[in-house]
Write a protein that binds this DNA or RNA. Structure first.
Lengths: 336, 336
DNA sequence: AACAATAATTCAAGTACTTGAAATTATCAA
DNA sequence: TTGATAATTTCAAGTACTTGAATTATTGTT
């Protein structure tokens, strides 16, 4: 790698002249400046970003604690994050929580060693341990939590308005005259509980009963509770509609219904959640779902983080931002 | 952030003593060493990785030029990459090719400024321009190209054995007595052309005709040529089987067939490619597909890169590695 | 107590830069 | 030719460390 020293040698000047010339400093003679810039270009000189980091105490790098590269919803969030980071001249270092790869405890110290200026946190799917919370609080740079949160979270958080989303989905079914409604829960994540809350509140508002046997918890199952759904749908006393935690759940429900010869939407209506990349339109019938705006979540989270970094930690009060959601009507809910 | 200076001040010793003590240098008195280590722990001291980088000329960081965070196949590759990087004590800086975010030309200089020790390249979906090739060659660190390649690529490459995969898929259909076979191409990427080649060779080997009107190019269409497939399947002269470039294509074909009331697999058999995360088993009937091993591709690519970094560029000859593929028989191909 | 031998610690220089102050060189008038 | 002023350039110190050489402190021996 060419350094300033190399260019200085070639141009027969000192390193500080090179430094100033490349920054367009007006004290350097025009011809000298031009020559140095040409040589730098010729040798494809690139300044060492790490030196600048050491000097300024800012690495212009943020850390992303990531969960799951398979999930295109998280991928969409990251796409939004990158859009903003790039515009701000920041790079990102991604580390996976994945227990197989790196244990929790090491994630923070790895970010600290790389001196990231801030942290975007996709929380791991279990509740944070006290050890992990201690590490988080000891981290001396701004943190923004994304997509999932936990009770008592004191950091800034950006996610979807899950309560509203589930309410919209449930209202939609009720409006179409369906009242025997079940719910596929996912209680191991905060968004799952929020969606469940939205469902229960809406049912109660309309004086409809929430039947335990129609509410299945898919949380933690790798197959999103496929077997449980199958069991529920094969009983004679089964719901006419299912509001699902997300589109994957809805797909599994649809698949179970197909296996049992139950027609969608004539005999069973479905609403998903997420409008996950391509998935709802690949199904037949096309899935009605609550659209989220993951790119916007990513953009917003990055904006907040970058602002906190600029303003210093004291200026930035912790924020709790819920992004809007929208019901997308397709063909999986029975018409009146 | 606490520095060695801070610890030195607290312990009333010089910085070099701190440095040596923290490395467990035997020349430092046991008690001094212990005290320094305790203070470092108490203040949660983390060495600045960038200083080490400057001194050694190794950043212990690699760059990943990424394409598409929505694609869980690429996500699986990255998962494999991260597994190996983490084990080797490396971090990754990810930059997206996405034209909206960062133009091609800047990607390499951004990696250079961060002094990444090597590059894992998911090539952009178009053929490399000569400008881009020049930048690649000017990059003075090892490069490994992943998943897609191009004619005359002189860098190491790791991808799936696409020719074999398409051959397996085609053989499977022929074996089940289907001979009116079409193909959904995707000719804008190298894997697409390789799979096409595997299809054509197998058809010729069995003396079967490759009918132009049954071979659709979905390349470049955001909806994977859904409309074209629909048109083809609505003619009376339509294929009895479709070998598809990937699972997404197959999903669109299935969806088109559903719309037209064509039953799968009785009237139309389908084989996908990729065994993309959850997708084939969410369909009904479940999709027969050619399984790839993306995590292994990622692992292999990372291994080769890390080896090249260790060995220096001259030692590492450029390699061309094709990972095995496997036909997974599910329910979308008609039984004899 | 003086000296050597050993143990423990510090110094100084190097990494790739930046920055304000100091030094050098050029230019012009008297 | 000298001195003053302006125009250029270089020096030196700082960033957060590492490392071998040099220095200082401690211990034991006579």
């Amino acid at each position: 790698m060419v350094s300033m020293k190399d260019i200085a040698k070639v141009c027969n000047v000192s390193e500080s002249t090179v430094s100033k010339a490349l920054k367009g400093h007006p004290l350097i003679k025009r011809e000298t400046r031009k020559q140095i810039q040409e040589v730098a270009l010729k040798y494809n000189y690139q300044p060492n970003a790490m030196v600048e980091s050491i000097q300024t105490g800012r690495s212009r790098t943020i850390g992303i604690a990531y969960n799951n590269f398979y999930d295109s919803f998280a991928g969409a969030i990251v796409t939004g994050i990158f859009e903003r980071l790039c515009a701000a001249g920041y790079e990102a270092i991604i580390i996976c929580w994945d227990e197989l790869v790196s244990h929790e405890a090491h994630v923070f110290s790895r970010f600290s060693r790389r001196r990231v200026d801030g942290l975007l946190l996709f929380p791991p799917r279990k509740l944070p341990t006290s050890e992990y919370l201690r590490e988080l609080r000891a981290f001396h740079n701004p943190i923004v939590v994304i997509d999932q949160t936990w009770p008592g979270n004191e950091f800034s958080y950006v996610g979807s308005d899950n309560v509203l989303g589930a309410a919209l989905a449930t209202e939609h079914m009720i409006e179409r005259g369906i009242s025997d409604i079940g719910f596929i829960k996912y209680s191991t994540v905060s968004s799952g509980n929020e969606r469940w809350q939205g469902f229960v509140e809406t049912m109660q508002k309309h004086g409809l009963p929430v039947k335990d046997s129609w509410c299945i918890d898919a949380g933690g199952f790798p197959e999103y509770g496929h077997e449980l759904i199958l069991k529920m749908l094969s009983r004679s006393d089964r719901p006419k509609g299912l509001v699902c935690f997300n589109d994957y759940c809805a797909c599994h429900a649809a698949s179970a219904a197909h296996e049992l010869g139950i027609r969608i939407p004539e005999e069973l209506s479905l609403v998903g959640f997420g409008d996950i990349h391509m998935l709802p339109t690949l199904l037949h019938p096309k899935l009605t779902t609550v659209k989220q705006f993951p790119e916007d979540i990513g953009r917003k989270a990055a904006d907040i983080l970058l602002e906190s970094i600029k303003g210093g930690k004291e200026i930035s009060a912790s924020k709790n931002i819920l992004m809007p959601v929208e019901l997308i009507c397709r063909d999986s809910v029975r018409r009146k």
